[in-house]
Simulated scan of single mutants.
Amino acid sequence: MSKDEALFILQLIGGPKGGGVKSGGGAKGTGKTIHGETRANQRGFSNDKINDIKNNYSHKVYQSGGRTVYAKKNGNYYDVVVINRKGEVITTVGGNTKSLKTWKDVTKMLNNQGGFSSLPVD
């Protein structure tokens, strides 16, 4: 497991010792967790792009822990934004990496991160 994958999993389960990842520091006031801010910057997701994906998604699914996943086809690739129950961006996938070519790629990624449902889980 890479360091990035481990950090993502810690984000999903509430961080080390159950403390969660806070929105302080570099992400303060952005509507993103620190991990979400880092990933958005690395993958070329501006606030406008994130809002466009949330408002004009082609797929919307849910994950446990109150997470909502928005995916939007962008040319030949999908861009994905994952929001926690507080409405904060916890991660973005795709963007300038162009790593998600098909919906199957998106579902594979989601299944590797605990699965997904077409109905809210909790």
Rank of each mutant, 00 (worst) to 15 (best):
M1A: 14
M1V: 13
E5F: 12
E5D: 15
A6M: 12
L7A: 13
F8T: 15
I9T: 13
I9L: 14
I9E: 11
L12V: 11
L12C: 08
I13A: 06
G15Q: 07
G15W: 08
K17W: 13
G18I: 08
G19W: 09
G19S: 10
G19I: 09
K22E: 11
G25Y: 08
G25W: 08
G26M: 10
G26K: 11
A27K: 05
K28G: 04
G29E: 08
G29R: 06
G31M: 02
K32M: 15
T33Q: 05
T33S: 14
I34H: 07
H35R: 14
E37V: 02
E37I: 02
E37D: 11
T38I: 12
R39Q: 14
A40W: 06
R43V: 01
R43Q: 13
F45Q: 05
F45K: 04
S46I: 06
N47V: 09
K49Q: 06
K54T: 04
K54R: 14
N55V: 02
N56C: 07
Y57L: 06
H59K: 15
H59Q: 12
H59R: 12
K60S: 03
K60P: 04
V61D: 06
Y62K: 01
Q63W: 04
S64G: 14
S64D: 12
G65C: 04
G65I: 04
G66Y: 05
G66W: 06
G66P: 10
R67K: 15
R67M: 13
T68K: 12
T68H: 07
V69W: 00
Y70V: 01
A71G: 10
K72V: 00
N76T: 06
Y78C: 00
D79T: 00
D79N: 15
D79M: 01
V80Q: 05
V81R: 03
V81N: 04
V82S: 00
K86N: 15
K86R: 15
G87L: 08
G87M: 07
G87Q: 07
E88V: 07
I90T: 15
I90K: 02
T91W: 10
T91G: 09
T97P: 02
T97G: 06
K98M: 09
S99G: 07
S99H: 02
K101A: 14
K101R: 15
W103Q: 04
W103F: 11
D105L: 02
V106D: 00
V106P: 00
V106F: 00
K108I: 12
K108E: 10
M109V: 11
M109H: 10
M109D: 07
N111E: 09
N111C: 08
N111P: 09
N112L: 09
N112T: 09
G114P: 03
G114S: 05
F116D: 01
F116E: 00
